[in-house]
Design a protein around this nucleic acid. Sequence first.
DNA 1: TAGATTGTTAATCGATTAACAATC
DNA 2: TAGATTGTTAATCGATTAACAATC
Lengths: 212, 212
Amino acid sequence: MEKNGKISSAVIRRLPKYYRYLGELKRMGVNKTSSRELSEMTGFSASQIRQDLNNFGGFGQQGFGYDVESLRFEIGKILGLDKKYKVIIVGAGNIGEAIANYTGFYEADYEVVSLFDKNPKLIGLSIRNAVIRDIDYIEEYLKAEKVDIAVICTPKSVCQQIAEKIVACGIKAIWNFAPKDLKMPEGVYVENVHLNESLFSLTYYYNKLKGE
Amino acid sequence: MEKNGKISSAVIRRLPKYYRYLGELKRMGVNKTSSRELSEMTGFSASQIRQDLNNFGGFGQQGFGYDVESLRFEIGKILGLDKKYKVIIVGAGNIGEAIANYTGFYEADYEVVSLFDKNPKLIGLSIRNAVIRDIDYIEEYLKAEKVDIAVICTPKSVCQQIAEKIVACGIKAIWNFAPKDLKMPEGVYVENVHLNESLFSLTYYYNKLKGE
DNA sequence: TAGATTGTTAATCGATTAACAATC
DNA sequence: TAGATTGTTAATCGATTAACAATC
């Protein structure tokens, strides 16, 4: 799909934003857009948007612009949103529960198939059709079921150990909400959502604003 | 504090990670560290770490390294973690509730003073000493109380409108969990936690791994 | 002192922006 | 056709890395 394998992560991280704004245009009934219009919406320069898209092929028409629906479809395909994903959530505490209820999963074909926790009071309960299972049986579960993505919402004291366990069972994609950098072997991708880093950055910029 | 006002955001976003690892070293009873050791822990190059720190002053000792406790303290001060912050959470649904229970606030002096929601079943309840109030009274509340940071956890359909309302009451720092880019006037800082963008990036890299 | 490691300047690398020919 | 806007190359900008003098 790509012209070469070296697309920078800065480009990849802009694609979801393009996808989202194209979805808004589509919902508004707009058929046609341009790099200039997308620039106004996203805040990225028109030149950068054209560069980004041309990493994956020419989706536009010279002199005309881009077809909203087909560009959205193509970006979705690049991101892999045309496929189905089975998701498990490890740790059914506050964050785990919130992620289980996260409606963003329905924007594409993600299915939360199970949660895992060690708290006996939680085991057996369900969140949106997904049962909370005993974390001691997670390996057994993963050997029986095909799972694409594991969301780690455990305390940081156990996240590394649990991550190693599920990776040994074949998990290759981890969405990590624990405030720790997981040390994983080659061939496993970890996407971190480090709330503490986000909050501290916000704090820095807030103080900077106040100081001016 | 800074040598000049143009510290890039890439630098700022690395500071919380230094702060976290220095905290770990401190907890382990390590007194002294070096850019080489921090490089091994964080994955950033030693050269980059020295460059980053020297944006704010010389915290090390040539030939020796860095004192763990004082470097941690200094980075904390740069980030503003030596000050107190009052936080409100707007939207007490799943994400709002999870954030209210977020223990990361206790790593520094953040206090969640109130939540706001429009759901009558939630109004009056408390989460960790913070009462959930009627969102219709948010302006009244903000006029009476000094609040530093507002966390937006509302549905995206109302986040822009609510953000405008609270900014008019003097809020200057927004931690935004709604999947939308808030359009805010100059002098307001918005830190976005866009879970959909994070999940879609993860999906891209997961597919890339599988394709290899 | 010798060894180690910072602070800082210079070199390199990569990402963004500008420019414009191609073409609808 | 004239106007508009892409696709793509070249120029610029900024961030990272390398190198090394300073110095503890």
